[in-house]
Design a protein around this nucleic acid. Structure first.
Lengths: 233, 233
DNA sequence: CGGTACGTTGAGTCATATCAACCATAGTGG
DNA sequence: CCACTATGGTTGATATGACTCAACGTACCG
């Protein structure tokens, strides 16, 4: 399965921008302690409010990260693809994970034990800075997300999500998104009910903005979606 | 005005947990380049989408930090009090500020120039780690906030806000919150319309959960508010 | 061939936004 | 000292977006 990352040679490590500041010794150290792990679709990588023993860098596939609220409803705040890091917050703060992560398609991840992360952070200032940058970027995204949820309608948010998915995961020749989410998952990203998503997707399909063949969503009229997402109406 | 922090002696620096890992040389360096600034109520400290030349540690008073959305409506995502740091994200990423900060009461802040921050972060790993921790904590808070907004009703969020305000800013002998926000500001924290807040505050007042004398809000029945905020109903 | 999960549609309800009018308060200038 | 105005607070009426509940269709899977 994991032919792209057979045994995590330095070349691969280096290609991960997060690890670009590690020196040869540190990379060798990583080679020793890090492991490649594979998860099948729907498998859980780590669970909210349980302690985690390390963090994970996605190598292939897509992972959803979500919090489960009071009523058991999940809110997906992140869809992580290759080269993104998961769980470092909890690892650094030594607190239980504040979210659950599961594979939404088969995926490979690189597991880095807690001790290793601590050691690298302590001894390599540039690495710590890179992590700091990542945290800051996520923080900024998070704040934008809040403002969106607080101020935009479900329709606007859905349009924006579709554009974001195209932008982040790309589309195939038929303009179909390279990520497949159930209606419920879409609802849990947008923060609304499944039925509302279905109705709005139907509406977008009637308006020829998108097409929904099987599970795949094709983006047909990006301009129109932008208009909905970022202007008014 | 600023009698509490006359000339930022080392003792004060050290008392700020963020700065606890700086050595005497670094503290001396800070003394040289940092400045105490005062802002009157409603004065702007920095503005969304403008570059900022340094970051700010609140020494006294309260600062609100908000993003302005499409329609000009503001969303307040943070109320910062003494010892909290503002703007370090933008300073580290060298990007324009992604939010505006204004004083909601007269306040004093310590201004730390960008170069100084960069230097400290680069040369002092523990300091970088502390910042990383702060970023991670904010990130976690931010994620919780999103889940809240996405899943809770306005009433639940208002109850939770009132409890948070009591917890963070405290109350006087008459149980009145030590922070005064306009109804509009409350609405902009909760992410709703001003009128909705007014109606719900009236409801809470009728139910004897709070009292609203003048601008001050008194918390009378914390248990009841907790029930609303965290259970259902 | 049933079964289970997912998708779709409709009807009814409710929370919240919006619009509009009005009141309270405080600061301002004559 | 008093109108005058601006600002924020309050209330009511109305509209509507979005949720819920319920039924039913569809597709994949053993």
């Amino acid at each position: 399965m994991n032919t792209e990352f057979p045994d995590l040679p330095h070349a691969v490590w280096r290609s991960l921008s997060l690890l670009r500041h590690l020196n040869p010794d540190e990379l060798a150290y990583l080679d020793e302690v890090a492991e490649t792990r594979t998860y099948a679709k729907n498998e859980i990588i780590f669970t909210q409010s349980k302690r985690i023993s390390g963090c994970y860098i996605v190598l292939s596939g897509i992972v959803k990260q979500f919090k489960t609220g009071g009523e058991g409803k999940e809110y997906i705040f992140r869809l992580a693809k290759a080269y993104e890091i998961l769980g470092f917050r909890s690892v650094l703060s030594e607190e239980p994970a504040c979210s659950t992560s599961t594979a939404i398609e088969d995926c490979t991840v690189c597991y880095i034990p807690k001790d290793c992360m601590h050691r690298l952070v302590k001894t390599n200032g540039d690495f710590a800075l890179d992590l700091l940058q990542i945290a800051c970027r996520e923080l900024e995204e998070s704040h934008s997300l809040i403002t969106n949820i607080a101020q935009k309608s479900v329709k606007e948010r859905l349009a924006e999500l579709l554009l974001m998915l195209k932008n982040k995961f790309g589309v195939n020749e038929q303009q179909q998104l390279n990520i497949v989410l159930s209606r419920e998952e879409v609802a849990n990203v947008v923060g609304t009910a499944t039925e509302s998503i279905i109705r709005l997707l139907s509406e977008f399909r009637n308006d020829r903005y998108i097409d929904t063949g099987g599970k795949k969503i094709a983006i047909l009229n990006e301009k129109a979606l932008e208009k909905i997402a970022f202007l008014k109406g």
